[in-house]
């Protein structure tokens, strides 16, 4: 910085509230995820990955576990991408 730069008026500081807002939204989305169901789903997913891993090599992210809740029945969908 030049000597005269010291006397220059600084730029107005950027607003910080939008950063606060975004950080909170990301954090709370993570903290909220209803703990009971999500831990059940996580456990189920881990068991499925373990079972498959005994027979073939899959990456954890290749396993998708989802529950569709409907009035009469709920459907558990398991999709596993197996390398060719």
């Amino acid at each position: 910085m030049s000597f005269f730069g010291l006397f220059k008026r600084s730029e107005p500081l950027p607003a910080t509230a939008p950063v606060a807002r975004e950080r909170l939204q990301v954090l709370l989305a993570h903290e909220r995820g209803s703990p009971r169901n999500s831990s059940k789903m996580t456990a189920l997913k881990e068991d499925i990955i373990d079972a498959i891993a005994r027979h073939m090599l899959v990456k954890p992210e290749a396993v998708k576990v989802k529950i569709d809740r409907r009035a009469e029945v709920s459907i558990l969908r398991i999709a596993v991408d197996i390398p060719a």
Partner: peptide, 16 residues
């Protein structure tokens, strides 16, 4: 401070 963008606005808090 809210007007300067340095404090969460009421709508931000309500949204969250």
């Amino acid at each position: 401070r809210a007007g300067r963008g340095d404090m969460l606005k009421t709508d931000d808090v309500l949204d969250i």
